[in-house]
Design a protein around this nucleic acid. Structure first.
Lengths: 328, 328
DNA sequence: TTTAGCATTGTCAATAGTTGAGTGCTAAAA
DNA sequence: TTTTAGCACTCAACTATTGACAATGCTAAA
């Protein structure tokens, strides 16, 4: 089992390494402690045996391992109060009643990125939105736009080109959807279309198959593109000394461009979640700290991406604060 | 004035440097020529005096300067035929009649990025689109969505929150816009709204000022966000050896994220335009080759971004081919 | 005008020496 | 039994130093 003093040493090492990004030696630690460097060395050797610390090479100082960070985060970290200045910046945004929720969130993660120098992401998850109305606007003889509106006011549109099809058939289909599917959560619309509209459509509409397909595609597209994704300080993380290698930079940037980042980040349970290194599924050198927020206008995820060596306590406090404010 | 032989030497140096990315020495050139390395050296010295070549250090081979590339591009370059394989890939896309124009363009720049290993961008420029219809859909007592549709089928929407305003007043405003402004180019709608709608609106609508403002904002937003921007192979250019420095990479990525890239790239006259190094306004180490396309469905710009040392003749041929195909 | 020859210049990669931070171990002190 | 001082050892990082090499510029001869 890990002793009280070992805990203390681990804590100092993690916090020192977060500050300096350089391996921490026994000498520099024993200033803050009431024992000599030799004792610290013995304890460090034991912490290393237990897997909490690592060495970059045989005669270097120690660096926290993933397990070390994990222990720090779970058991040693103390919440850090934010400085007055940072508080103030965030408060001015939350107090500005003119901004709508989306803007507030966007602005606040911009500020987080600014004060932490990490990268922030919001994933707006609109899966809980419901269909409000479908509208069709003819553009010319063959083209028309189908517009889908949700109860939160989001819209999506799809251009449909239909030759040899009666505009009145389209209108009937639209009426049918508006009559039967309004109020359906947007991600269920496709399946309801399949089971509730498709069976009855044949009665009213001649070339039902083609029209049905066009709308089916429109709704599928909507469900796909409905989760928004906004980055702030996208290149901040590249400024961290651990990303001085151009291969690593390319790798991270590619990951950011990749659509799947959304999926990787999105699965979150309640509270503040911390994924260190390999746990992050993004890159072994980064930590992702994220939280879900839940408001009347929908739910979403805010994530902060930084080096493993990130200021855990500060970021956690920030996220807790922002989550609380958004949910009000 | 530059002599025939100097031209030939310049051409060999540019092409050799494009291939190898290493400074070119006199020895390696004189194989391809009917004079000795010493003669070549003399000519090279003169080319350097005239500003067409540069040295990385006193005893290195020569590298083309911006002026050198420019001369090469303007006077020496011969169009290069594409290889059969590359042709084929592009043709299969252009022949696929199921894809709509946007998809064709997107897919084809993806292929360009793949075969050239540079970065490609399309900027859809919808400034020529015309207003087709304005539609308003109430969400609840106070919120409504205004939807703007253009003749090309693009839509934009804006959520408007209006307390203490009669829904019928809104409807009147919408009818007025649909009656008077349909067919107006989208970037002129704002000013027409000012001069044609505003003066008459007071007669029909009680709280006209507020409603007017809401619509004015909606249209301004639309004009702003109407130019789309799609990248392919965003990180390709970072693979070039000249971008092995992490500062440079960060710089380029930042430029790519910056919205202003659109403005910088968009101003293009007809034909194929080549902007070398500082001319590109993007970064001194890159070349941007771009062209405008013009179809019934709107115009746009395709740009290829690579190192200054890029395969000019190949890229130019590719762009010419694609422009021609798109415009059909 | 062209070319051969040669001294000159700077890069690059390999080598060796030096320094300094940090460790592990041992034996003495608490 | 625990802690500490001391010392030998290790390794990375830095600094010359060196020689091989690739080009160059210049000069004098072809």
């Amino acid at each position: 089992m890990i002793s009280k003093r070992q805990e203390e040493i681990l804590k100092v090492i993690v916090e020192e390494y977060i500050k300096s990004a350089k391996p921490v030696g026994s000498e520099s630690i024993c200033n803050n402690m009431k024992c000599s460097s030799a004792t610290v060395r013995n304890e460090m050797a034991e912490l290393e045996d237990m897997g909490f610390l690592e060495k970059t090479h045989i005669s270097s100082g120690r660096v926290p391992s993933e397990k070390g960070y994990r222990y720090y985060v779970d058991s040693l970290m103390k919440p850090k109060n934010m400085s007055g200045e940072e508080m103030l910046k965030l408060q001015t945004i939350f107090k500005n009643t003119e901004l709508d929720l989306n803007d507030v969130i966007t602005r606040s993660i911009e500020i987080i990125s600014e004060i932490t120098a990490y990268t922030s992401v919001v994933l707006g998850n609109s899966s809980s939105e419901k269909l409000k109305k479908v509208e069709v606007i003819p553009l010319n003889d063959v083209d028309l736009v189908a517009i889908v509106v949700t109860d939160k006011g989001h819209t999506e549109n799809k251009k449909i080109t239909l030759s040899r099809i009666d505009i009145n058939d389209i209108k009937k289909m639209v009426d049918l959807i508006n009559e039967l599917l309004v109020g359906t959560p947007i991600d269920e619309v496709s399946s309801k279309l399949e089971f509730e509209i498709k069976p009855v459509i044949g009665k009213y509409v001649k070339q039902h198959e083609m029209i049905y397909n066009a709308f089916y595609n429109a709704f599928s597209d909507f469900a796909k593109s409905s989760s928004s994704c906004y980055f702030a300080g996208k290149t901040n993380i590249l400024k961290q000394p651990e990303f001085n290698d151009s291969d690593k930079i390319r790798n991270i940037i590619n990951k950011f461009e990749d659509k799947n980042i959304v999926d990787n980040i999105e699965e979150t349970n309640n509270g503040i979640n911390i994924y260190i290194g390999s746990e992050s599924k993004l890159d072994n050198d980064v930590t992702v700290i994220k939280t879900k927020y839940d408001t009347e206008d929908g739910e979403g995820t805010i994530a902060i991406i930084g080096p493993k060596r990130m200021e855990y306590s500060k970021v956690v406090s920030l996220l807790e604060y922002i989550k609380k404010e958004i949910e009000r």
